[in-house]
């Protein structure tokens, strides 16, 4: 464990909590892509199946339980409890265009052709594109609530910090996982446009609206 990975996990946890609180407090999931939330929930479920087979540490197991429960709770709030506020007309990204290629790729490019490893690989590839429905929805509505932009900031930051963690681990431990690194790069690059808008607009107190 190193500071960048810990900071990444904290940033990820903050993002998940921000979103959950936003929906719960405002009793509304306006501007939130339910499709992205479903993708994130499946990312966690497919990646953390080892929760029942391998014990790494209390931290590792508890974070996995928190991520899985919060992401499923968020999907529940969006599609059931606050369904009336779900903006389905703008949440129209065709997720099958993500899931099918990602599913195929995880069978072709993986570290080990075993069920657990293929599910882990699927989860890694899926996470790298899971935010696309959310970014697509923002481009369609042309704006995002400020709290939503903070959610996206911490969510994008987390994998960026993991990239630094992987540089650290390669340098000090000689460890590297090319699948996670390439997917993490793609994932972080997808946020670049948003990061630019976040820094130049939201941090200056303006609302995030597109076109920029």
């Amino acid at each position: 464990m190193n500071i960048f990975r810990l900071a990444g996990d904290v940033s990820h946890l903050v993002a998940i909590i921000i979103l959950l609180l936003k929906i719960w407090k405002t009793r509304s999931c306006a501007g939130i892509s339910g499709k992205s939330q479903i993708l994130f929930a499946s990312v966690f479920v497919t990646r953390y199946l080892d929760l029942f087979t391998i014990f790494i540490s209390l931290y590792n197991s508890s974070m996995k339980i928190i991520y899985i429960s919060c992401s499923i709770a968020t999907v529940y709030l969006v599609y059931f409890k606050f369904k009336a506020t779900y903006d389905g007309n703008h949440d129209t990204f065709r997720v099958e265009f993500l899931v099918v290629p990602v599913g195929g790729l995880s069978f072709l490019v993986n570290h080990d052709f075993s069920p657990m490893e293929i599910l882990w690989t699927f989860s890694i590839y899926l996470e790298s594109v899971a935010i696309l429905p959310q970014l697509f929805m923002i481009s369609k509505t042309g704006e995002a609530e400020t709290i939503t932009t903070h959610y996206l900031f911490f969510l994008g930051l987390y994998r960026g910090l993991y990239l630094i963690n992987w540089i650290w681990r390669y340098y000090f431990e000689g460890f590297f996982d090319l699948i996670a690194i390439v997917a993490g790069l793609v994932q972080t690059v997808l946020y670049c446009d948003f990061f630019y808008l976040y820094v130049t607009k939201v941090l200056k107190g303006k609302k995030l609206s597109l076109p920029a």
Binding site: R5, D9, H12, D50, I54, I56, N60, M63, K64, Y67, N110, H111, D112, S114, M116, E117, W120, Y162, N165, F175, F176, D177, A180
Partner: peptide, 10 residues
Amino acid sequence: KPKGNNHDEL
């Protein structure tokens, strides 16, 4: 190259 299934990261 890490053996497949020893993923210790979240």
